[in-house]
Every structure is written in structure tokens, then in C-alpha cells.
Amino acid sequence: MNPGPQIKFYLFNKEYLPVTDTLIVGWVSVILILILAKYLTSNLKMRPEGKQNVAEMIIELIYDQIEPMLPNEGWRFLPFIATIFIYVGFSNLIGLVPGVTSPTGDLNTTLGLALVVFIVVQLEGMREHGVWGYIKSFAEPVIFLLPINVIGELAKPISHSFRLFGNIVGGGIIMTLIYQAAPALVPVPLHAWFDFFVGMIQALIFGMVAIAYISVAKS
């Protein structure tokens, strides 16, 4: 696919990895999230008011998804899942700004996130069952299922990342076509659907699928 505009670095006639717009928008959204988090959590009170209500609402929404699937470990996994959820949600929303492409519309971003989830899933499985016990759980109930289980495990990050990538890119392509056909007024409700609704739902799904993978590895 077309990688979009790039900044290339040359040193001694050797070309280094280019800086794509994905990388720039991704870092900008990270910085914006940091500023937002700092603002929302400053001056916390026991009786929440104003901006603290918003922060508590977001955290409770994520916590309520984790707790039923990983009983008694909601607070342990909250930082990890909330980071994924907020980053993916913010990256999808930043596509609303004209001329900015969502970082999640790039397979590199989503595959990176999915690989992080994959590593956490493996470590949690090993923590729960022990290293040898976890490896042995792939050969159950019979040894013939070992290759199928291993392939099934390796397919998880691929399906996990392609789901998010396909949704965002598909929405982006449809929006580009709409802009060519009807540049004014018509795209506004479609932006609300493809960027806002689909983006939020996909962020929630990305986090929930990560929770589901962890709970499967631990059971």
C-alpha cells in the first residue's frame, strides 16, 4: 500500500528508516493523551466534581469490562487494558481532524499493539500454570492437536490486528470516495459513524478481546 508522505534520513549515503505520518500522528496523540490525563487527574477530591467525574467515568467503564472476565484482578490489569483502550480510542478519534490519518489505519501500529498483547498473554499463561505446564497445555487433550493449537495461538495477534486495521482503513477508503462524490454536508453524518461510533466500538473491542485472550490463557 501507499505509505503516504515520509521524512527520510540520509547519513553517509545510507538510508535509515523513514518517519511516516503514522509515527508523527501517533506521537502527537501520545503527548495529547499525557496532557489530558495530567489535566483530568490534577486536584483530585474525595467528592468528585467536574473533570474528575469524566476521568472516573472512563476508568469505571474499562474496569467494568475487566472485572467479570478476570475476577478479583480488575485493578491489576486495569493499567494495561486502559492504556490500550485510551490509545486506540484516541487514535481513532484523531482521524476526525481533516488531513490527519489515524495511526490505527496503519498495520504497523495495530500489529505492534497486538504483539504486546500476545506477549502479555503468554507471560500470564506461564505465570498461572508454570512454564512447562503452559507449554504442555498446548498438547491437550491429545498430542495430535499440538500443531493446531500452536497455529491457533499464532493466529490470534494477526486476527486481532487485522480487525482494527481493516475497520479503520475500510472507513477511510469509503470516506475518501464520499469526499470525491459529495464534498460538502454529506460526509458529516458519515464521519460521525465511521470515525466516532466505529472508532469507539473498535477501541472497546480491541481491549475486550485482549481481556478475553488473557482470561483464556489463565483458565
Binding site: 500500500m1 486476527s159 487485522f162 481493516g166 475500510g170 477508503i173 478481546v209
Partner: peptide, 20 residues
């Protein structure tokens, strides 16, 4: 919605392949 999106991902895979 959760179930629909999980089951809709097979369609998304075909979309990704088509885009590629």
C-alpha cells in the same frame, strides 16, 4: 454489538485482502 463485531471480523479480513 460485541458479538456482531467479533463475527463481522471475517468480513473485515476479506476486505483487508481485497485492499492488499
Amino acid at each position: 454489538l460485541l458479538g456482531q463485531i467479533i463475527s463481522g471480523s471475517t468480513g473485515i479480513y476479506s476486505l483487508v485482502i481485497a485492499i492488499f
